[in-house]
Design a protein around this nucleic acid. Structure first.
Lengths: 216, 216
DNA sequence: TTTTGGTAAGTAATTACTCACTCACCATAT
DNA sequence: ATATGGTGAGTGAGTAATTACTTACCAAAA
């Protein structure tokens, strides 16, 4: 999880932007591993293979470096356009499976989840924005989709926001168990995704005319 | 959340046990609020209305004090016997509603949840035990109940453990949103509990002969 | 030569933890 | 009644190490 940014021995200097990006990446994994108060600027410098002074040349304070990390946007356009495509075809199963697979997959990196939780627990001011970009965007989108499917009669009349949160809750809890609490899994990620999607879709489709694909 | 242990002005000394319990309670709320590395022994002493030296008379190190907090058991017998009662009557709705209401309720104290998350993120050795006592006990019990109901034909053939985690995931996510990320709620706790229980029961009862109580 | 990338060696403040030391209280011997 | 000595509760003033951050300076490009 923590890895030093190796620098080539013969190239003495890196460009300013490279260095800055390197420091951000290195610090992000340290903050994710140990939290804000648990990480020292000395550790960051050492892991980034430079002096503490250089870190402070790029970022006025430790908090500013932390804020720069939280403010970084994760590109999600690829996933969202693919989901949008499935949504247009009204392929409920695919929509939910894609979202679930994006969160639950083999070798998932717990860094962002840990950053998210640490920032919220430690009460950083940018925590809310980070939460919105990383998490809320999913269940807000999902709530919109569910609302539409209810109007179309494909789902029963549930509270769309609560239903979306329920589904995201299953996924978040799953990640919490395995990535944070280190609970060993007795099923493959794909099996888990399928189970969660089945459970949820059966819940929202109960009593409607929607056909459920049978499982083996 | 954080409150100093007030001592009466005329009674100069407290008994050893009282002091120890007071320090534990005070430190627990501080650790929950700011984490282990984010809390100083000076703050703990000040909040407990005594000197730092006295804190170290009771606990050899800061970590030992933290460990004493995590090792404390929360009495859950009252809830579990009540749930056991509903389980005997095969009142599925009541079983799930009681468990959900215990987690989601007005004025719920986020202290234990914060301690749980902080201890896991910061990687304390006792974190697993704390997790087991605080959380795992619920979904392990629930998994057993679900397994039984499947055998009885009341629930469809789902993976009991995954199903139990799904339900607990809805609740954990709900608490995370409101108690940690401070997302305002648009529904009452009771409404949320009802929605979650309905959604879940419809999911596991789909295709069985189980009757679902209609909602307004 | 000026700008840029980089650092060694500081600083004052804070950290967990220790030590030498009171003080109140209480049973018992005088 | 009162002096005696023991004990547990409690603390002020430290300690060495670590913290975030600064200053003065250097070397290699441009």
């Amino acid at each position: 999880m923590i890895m030093a940014t190796k620098r080539l021995k013969n190239s003495k200097k890196a460009s300013g932007q490279e260095r800055q990006a390197g420091i951000i990446a290195t610090a992000a994994s340290l903050f994710a591993a140990r939290g804000f108060t648990g990480t020292t600027t000395r550790e960051i410098a050492k892991a980034a293979c430079c002096s503490e002074a250089l870190v402070f040349k790029h970022f006025p304070t430790k908090r500013a470096l932390y804020a720069a990390i939280l403010a970084e946007k994760v590109p999600l356009t690829e996933l969202l356009t693919a989901v949008e495509d499935a949504a247009k075809k009204r392929d409920d199963r695919l929509v939910f499976t894609m979202l679930a697979s994006h969160r639950i997959r083999r070798g998932a990196d717990p860094t962002l989840l840990r950053l998210l939780l640490f920032s919220a627990l430690e009460g950083h001011e940018l925590s809310n924005m980070f939460f919105k970009n990383q998490h809320r965007i999913f269940y807000d989108y999902l709530a919109g989709y569910i609302e539409q499917r209810i109007r179309e009669g494909a789902f029963r009349r549930v509270d769309p926001l609560l239903a979306a949160r329920s589904f995201m809750g299953m996924l978040a809890h799953h990640r919490l168990l395995h990535e944070i609490f280190r609970v060993p899994s007795h099923r493959s990620p794909e099996d888990c995704v399928e189970s969660y999607v089945n459970l949820f879709l059966d819940g929202v489709q109960a009593g409607t005319s929607a056909t459920r694909k049978t499982r083996s």
